[in-house]
């Protein structure tokens, strides 16, 4: 079966800013694909082109075999979009918002009212349906924002950082509902800069940085790139010496990579236990306080560090 989404050499420039620099990937029907990347990597820009909002500078994007450039209306019928910024009418109720957007997706009559009820159940806001969105908490608004993208049961759902800025409980609920939607057969393209989310949700992951797709594959395929390395994660007191410790760690035998982000020092090595002692010695020598030590099996964070030399959350 042909992939539901095909992206070929996608380039998007804003004037002289190159936001996306030749990205290619496919998404198969039924999978959850995560686009993982730091702020400004080009995730939103990519989704904007994929969802027909922006025209690509060059390259080719097809959804269900339809070009986003020449057949945007056909594409729009297949896709649902959950934008990164909440896009709702504050002065309409949740119910009125859903009815309105359902109509924009050509739903009407009983189908429309049924779908709206269904979505209200899914986002667990049936009891607040008649309240204006203005009166909702951030998490509730996020849920309505997602609900709007689900009304017409799209085959392919784009979700652009849907968990930004909300409490852990709402975040949990959203991640669970993404999995539930996927079980019902919906294909999902999910962007995030949280490694954990990509790790929990996705079948395949694309890592994007500075407008380029620097890695693409299943989580196993990606972590294999870093080898069988572990990550030694140290929480240290902040200060000048942390940078020095980071540099010093690189000269310890067996250390592959080392980077700091705020008060976190991440050191990659084949066997974390073996470098733990020398790192502590160095820390003492540089007078760096260690608050906690954790050893992580290879993960996407490590992949990103390995590929870019930077931590994901810079």
């Amino acid at each position: 079966m042909a992939p539901i989404l095909e992206v070929r050499n996608l380039v998007k420039n804003y004037g002289s800013t190159a936001a996306v620099k030749g990205v290619s990937f496919n998404i198969e029907e039924g999978e959850i694909f995560s686009l993982l990347g730091p702020n400004g990597a080009g995730k939103t820009t990519t989704i904007s082109v994929l969802s027909t909002l922006l025209a690509p500078t060059s390259g080719d994007v097809r959804v269900g075999g339809h070009s986003v450039v020449s057949e945007p209306m056909k594409v729009r019928n297949l896709i649902g979009v959950v934008p990164q910024e909440i896009a709702l009418y504050d002065d309409l109720t949740a119910h009125e918002n859903l009815i309105f957007w359902g109509q924009m997706y050509n739903l009407s009559g009983k189908t429309l009212t049924d779908r709206v009820q269904q979505v209200l159940q899914e986002i667990e806001l049936a009891d607040r349906a008649k309240d204006r969105v203005r009166t909702f908490s951030g998490g509730m608004k996020r849920r309505v924002n997602i609900g709007v993208g689900l009304l017409h049961r799209p085959r392919l759902l784009f979700m652009d950082e849907p968990t930004v800025g909300i409490d852990p409980q709402s975040r949990r609920a959203i991640l669970d509902s993404v999995k539930a939607l996927n079980r019902q057969g919906m294909t999902v393209l999910y962007t995030t800069h949280y490694m954990e989310e990509a790790q929990e949700l996705s079948d395949r992951v694309g890592i994007i940085d500075h407008g380029e797709l620097i890695a693409l594959g299943t989580q196993n395929e990606l972590t294999r790139q870093v080898g069988e390395n572990d990550a030694l994660v140290l929480e240290v007191g902040e200060g000048e010496n942390v940078r020095q410790l980071c540099e010093a760690a690189k000269s310890i035998p067996g250390v592959v990579e080392s980077d700091t982000s705020g008060s976190t020092l991440t050191i990659i090595a084949p066997e974390a236990e073996e470098i733990l002692a020398p790192v502590i010695v160095q820390a003492n020598a540089l007078n760096v306080k260690i608050h906690s030590v954790a050893i992580q099996e290879p993960n996407l964070e490590a992949v990103f560090l390995h590929l870019t030399g930077r931590a994901l959350r810079d």
């Binding site: 027909t52 909002l53 979009v81 934008p83 709702l88």
Partner: peptide, 14 residues
């Protein structure tokens, strides 16, 4: 400003 125009433009609405 509130993003609903962008949302409108990804629905099948001219």
């Amino acid at each position: 400003q509130i993003g609903t125009l962008r949302r409108m433009l990804v629905t099948p609405t001219r």
